[in-house]
Design a protein around this nucleic acid. Structure first.
Length: 749
DNA sequence: TTTAGTAAG
């Protein structure tokens, strides 16, 4: 078979005479010469060697343009060659030499590349050709904030490099390690790299680390930045590249010791911004009005409307459907307006609808229809939708806030930042020129919006983070080099929690228990509960409960079928409380062989349950590795053992029933109520709760009844009467102590 | 008598 491409190649490098001349030069070298020049012998060629850390774009491109894949020794495929041409058109390609020059002369560099610049796929490859990590037995890591991104980019880059995914190019995310000893380029979630740092504190297996999407400032990215900065001092051979879309470059440069900054333009279309002339009283009304205006007056093109939450989104969709019905009745010309909701808890099949084609015109020559996607800020970063031409931005989103004084994380509808507003507007310019309607005044944009959203580390409970940092060997948290330091009070709260859980001793040193706890990808309270369950011999059951507590709510309750859903849920309920209900639900799911129909009929979220199953397997493996007993409890003691384990982890989240009939939380005496979703109907004297939610009232959600004496037995360090405020709970506990002393002295007699 | 922005380990 004559292969056309090879034939052409022969003619191109052509020059048969030249080849023959060369072959005649020296008999000794003739074989080598032939291998070098004869394309039919190309597979015998040794790939041209690049010198690590000293390559130029031209040298690297020559190899990329060649016939043999330097990483596998195989012939490049036609598919590779096709993709290569497209890669060369990416904006980042024009900056390859500049990038290499910066990498050669600096340990750390910052790279800002707008959407469509190709930075996430190309920069790691530029580095692979330059670093030659395989010769050093090392890898290059590129982190992503999200699992899907790590996975899909890795697959794309494996194609681009003409290798099999999981071999030279791989990825590593929770539940899936798709790498091999051959791997030289590894995409991974930022959290995963942080996990690796716990066993390999200097990250010795990497010769270069790329932190991508740094502007998102996830908890893990922030910690990694501090950590890597520290590692860099002791590992001069480690290259570090911080990449992001829009980045507060001055702040980043200052933090990274004035590292040089490379800017790469993106490939997007201009978006025209329109502001409201005056402040809107009700942004939801204004948003719906704007949708209708666009639909009736503007050119074809889909709309993306940002709202704050599920309920608001469903409500807006309903109203838009009504509006559409009246419009269609009023005119036969106008196209259909089809609202599509989008938020994370929506079942995947419904999420897919955002990619459907817009509705067709209602007849020949009539106006086409239009999709309007009504979304949370999931569409701001996590999901990109092509075909959006109009964006409506009311300027709000739900954001997590943490109040260390009352130790509560809650969600609050808050104004977005300028960075967020720009990101939202950008969503209109992905396919062609677009428009963004901001439902606030320009004045308000300039004066009221913060430049950047507060990073997560400043808005979160840091229990887990502090445990991880301790495990990473960071002893002095107060002086750890955070880009933005969390509030001292937040750190104090975390240290206090870990001390009470006996993960840290009074000097703040990690204890043996703390070492074990840090191994689990769970909140400290859940870790403690698991460890205790081994002692109380019910770890099989507690494992399931922990897994169920670490996934999104499994109980589905559609607005129009509440009663039926509640009735179905009742079959799993147990008098001891909601934790046991979770256990029974999970057990029923397994007993029914994870059947999707069974889930559907019982109003259970299949996705959540499957994910609980995955978590459970992972946690069980960690327990076995740490030699913690995984045992099934004896039936007669089962539920009290489980409740004792719960108490061992959550003794700081206890409420006591007062004579008034209200619950007060322990020590800080907040009035709290049992969440209406709880299966507990009568009011037990003592309850532990999993979380505290602040809505119309202060609610405890997912609660279980316990006994006062357990608190004294299991957590004497917290229930120390010499350090306990006066209150009914204290008096109740003192009565228990007295009774116990009495009965034990009776026994002694 | 009623919540859930997003993501990660």
């Amino acid at each position: 078979m004559i292969d056309n491409t090879r034939k052409r190649k022969w003619d191109d490098t052509g020059n048969m005479q030249n080849t023959i001349d060369k072959q005649q030069k020296s008999n000794d070298n003739s074989l080598n010469e032939a291998i070098e020049t004869n394309p039919y012998l190309a597979h015998l060629r040794k790939p041209e060697k690049l010198i690590s850390g000293k390559t130029t774009a031209a040298q690297a491109e020559k190899i990329e343009n060649g016939e043999i894949n330097p990483f596998t020794g195989r012939h490049f495929t036609q598919k590779y060659k096709d993709i290569l041409q497209k890669r060369r058109n990416l904006p980042v390609h024009a900056h390859r030499d500049k990038f290499l020059e910066l990498v050669h002369n600096n340990q750390m560099i910052l790279l800002v590349g707008e959407t469509g610049s190709g930075k996430t796929t190309q920069i790691p490859q530029f580095l692979v050709y330059d670093e030659q990590p395989q010769d050093k037995g090392k890898m290059i890591a590129c982190t992503q904030p999200r699992r899907v991104a790590a996975m899909s980019v890795a697959k794309r880059v494996a194609d681009e490099m003409d290798v099999n995914i999981g071999e030279e190019v791989g990825y590593s995310i929770r539940f899936e390690d798709c790498t091999s000893p051959k791997t030289i380029l590894k995409y991974m979630t930022d959290g995963m790299l942080l996990r690796e740092a716990m066993t390999d504190p200097k990250l010795t297996r990497y010769s270069a680390i790329i932190l991508d999407e740094a502007h998102e400032r996830t908890l893990a990215t922030d910690i990694l930045m501090g950590l890597i900065k520290k590692i860099a001092k002791n590992r001069k051979d480690l290259k570090i590249i911080i990449m992001s879309a829009t980045l507060d470059s001055e702040k980043f440069q200052k933090y990274f010791n004035d590292a040089p900054l490379l800017k790469v333009p993106g490939r997007t279309f201009p978006v025209e911004i329109y502001y409201s002339p005056e402040a809107e009283r009700n942004y939801l009304d204004a948003a719906i009005r704007t949708v209708i205006q666009i639909h009736t007056c503007e050119e074809p093109g889909d709309i993306l409307l940002f709202l704050t939450g599920e309920e608001e989104i469903e409500d807006a969709c309903r109203r838009l459907r009504d509006e559409n019905n009246s419009l269609m009745k009023a005119s036969t010309e106008i196209g259909e307006l089809r609202p599509i909701p989008l938020y994370s808890s929506l079942p995947p099949a419904l999420q897919q609808k955002i990619f459907d084609d817009p509705p067709p015109p209602r007849g020949p020559g009539k106006q086409p229809g239009r999709k309007v996607i009504v979304s949370t800020n999931i569409a701001e970063t996590s999901l990109t939708i092509d075909g959006i031409v109009y964006v409506i931005d009311p300027g709000f989103s739900k954001q997590k806030v943490y109040n260390p004084r009352i130790r509560i994380e809650s969600l609050l509808v808050s104004p977005i930042s300028k960075a967020s507003a720009k990101q939202r507007a950008g969503r209109a310019g992905r396919t062609r020129e677009g428009k963004c309607f901001r439902l606030y005044t320009e004045q308000s944009y300039i004066k009221d919006l913060n430049e950047q959203t507060y990073p997560e580390i400043m808005r979160s409970n840091l229990g887990s983070v502090v445990l991880q940092l301790k495990k990473l060997g960071i002893d002095d948290l107060v002086h750890f080099d955070f880009m933005d330091a969390p509030a001292p009070e937040t750190l104090m709260r975390a240290l206090e929690l870990l001390n009470y859980l006996e993960a840290l001793d009074d000097e703040g040193e990690l204890t043996k228990t703390g070492e074990i706890m840090a191994e689990f990808p769970l909140d400290p309270q859940l870790c403690k509960m698991l460890i205790a369950s081994s002692k109380y011999k019910c770890s099989e059951e507690v494992l399931s409960i922990v897994a169920m507590l670490s996934v999104p709510n499994v109980y589905i309750r559609p607005k129009d079928q509440k009663d039926r859903a509640d009735e179905k849920r009742r079959q799993f309920e147990h008098d001891d409380g909601d934790h046991i209900t979770l256990l029974k639900t999970f057990q029923a799911f397994k007993a029914n062989h994870e059947d999707p129909n069974w889930c559907y009929n019982n109003y259970l979220n299949l996705r959540s349950l499957k994910s609980a199953d995955n978590v459970r397997i992972q946690i069980e493996n960690i327990m076995k590795r740490l030699r913690l007993d995984v045992v099934k409890s004896e039936d007669d003691k089962k539920f009290s053992s489980i409740r004792k384990s719960l108490t061992a982890g959550f003794f700081m989240q206890v409420a006591h029933l007062e004579k008034s009939g209200h619950y007060l939380t322990i020590k800080d005496n907040q009035v709290v109520f049992i969440h209406p979703s709880s299966c507990i109907m009568e009011k037990p004297e003592w309850v532990v709760y999993n979380e505290f939610v602040l809505t119309t009232k202060n609610y405890m959600r997912t609660i279980t009844k316990i006994k006062g004496e357990w608190l004294l037995d299991i957590a004497p360090q917290y229930y120390d009467m010499s350090n306990f405020p006066q209150c009914e709970a204290r008096r109740a506990l003192e009565r228990i102590i007295k009774k116990h002393k009495l009965s034990s002295s009776h026994r002694r007699k």
